[in-house]
């Protein structure tokens, strides 16, 4: 087994593109679920409309990169409003059902044959990221130190990505320390009590849905730009559930929870993947075919997460006292 390669790819995964985009998606989920108690199971849709908004604006309409970003953000805000108006007045579980359905509808529209000219069907769209790489200040070459070495394109994506994460975390930190965040947390506990104290609960839930959706949309941009393409099936329900896993792993309603959660999640996945593939190649696991490595690594990581929830239900950063209150 090539331990050097396994370790180096694992270490790289801690700051890699997947970690960045899932961290952004999870920061959005944390605003929805961790702070406001909104069960948004359609985070993938926010990422999808942003990615496709950018891709279609640039490739199909031939407009500049920045307008594409604007369209993507606007699409995320619109999606939040459209999902929120009918469901935010209802009980929490309705939002969960509607968002998961809406996310699937959006994914199926993007991959439909009828709209192949616009969205590119199941192949998706490509060739829209040049405007982004044209802005790349890093000249050709490799950057970084030791195992953290990336080429100039990846470096640029990661630079922007981690900048967006830092910015999102700062905004979430400032908001959740403020009276605005206090109203959100109170809504999570009991929205009728908040209403009885003269706060417009619907308006706050809508603001939360938009904020978290827009942060998730940033993850969609990062995906599209890093891989220079968008495909519909990337934005399936498992993307949303990975984001939820990351939030719970890091500790819900903690500013840095989703970021650290995402790092751990991807480090684990890549590490298990590396070890399993290496072991299969070397013939240590004669009962496993190389194609089974992918599913099995999710299985093992899943078991790990179950153990974590059993022995540390508050996540990495969570407060044990809060969980104790829930159990009462």
């Amino acid at each position: 087994m090539d331990w050097v390669t396994i370790i180096s790819t694992t270490v790289k995964a801690a700051v890699g593109v997947e970690t960045v985009l899932y961290a952004l998606a999870a920061i959005g989920i944390n605003v929805h679920f961790g702070y406001t108690g909104l069960l948004n199971f359609g985070q993938a849709a926010f990422m999808a409309v942003a990615g496709y908004g950018l891709a279609v604006t640039v490739t199909v309409l031939g407009l500049p990169f920045w307008i594409g970003i604007g369209v993507g953000l606007l699409a995320a805000v619109l999606l939040a409003v459209v999902l929120g108006i009918p469901t935010l007045r209802l009980r929490a579980d309705y939002l969960a059902i509607v968002t998961i359905a809406a996310a699937e509808i959006i994914r199926l529209i993007f991959r439909s044959v009828a709209f192949k000219d616009v969205f590119g069907g199941s192949d998706g769209q490509r060739g829209f990221s040049e405007g982004f790489y044209a802005l790349n200040p890093f000249p050709e070459g490799d950057y970084g130190f030791g195992w953290f070495t990336f080429n100039n394109r990846v470096t640029w994506v990661l630079f922007v990505g981690w900048l967006l994460i830092a910015l999102s975390c700062l905004i979430v930190y400032l908001l959740m320390k403020s009276p605005w965040g206090r109203v959100l947390k109170a809504i999570r506990e009991d929205e009728d009590a908040v209403r009885a104290l003269g706060k417009n609960v619907f308006s706050y839930k809508m603001q939360s849905l938009i904020l978290g959706g827009v942060i998730g949309a940033l993850g969609g941009f990062i995906y599209g730009l890093a891989f220079a393409s968008v495909q519909p099936d990337i934005f399936g329900t498992e993307t949303t559930f990975f984001a939820y896993t990351i939030v719970i792993l890091g500790g819900a309603a903690r500013v840095l929870g989703p970021v650290v959660g995402s790092m751990i999640f991807w480090v684990l996945l890549v590490l298990v993947n590396g070890i399993l593939s290496g072991a299969v190649e070397a013939g240590y696991l004669p009962f496993m075919a190389p194609t089974q490595v992918g599913p099995v690594r999710f299985l093992l990581v899943g078991i790990g997460l179950i153990l974590l929830l059993v022995y540390r239900p508050q996540g990495i950063f969570g407060d044990k006292r809060e969980i104790a209150i829930d159990a009462r």
Partner: peptide, 20 residues
């Protein structure tokens, strides 16, 4: 509001808060 402190519960009641 269980997972808010007693003080945060109280502060929430105040009206016309700029920070909201």
């Amino acid at each position: 509001l269980s997972r808010l402190t007693v003080m945060e519960n109280m502060r929430l009641g105040a009206q016309r808060q700029k920070g909201e």
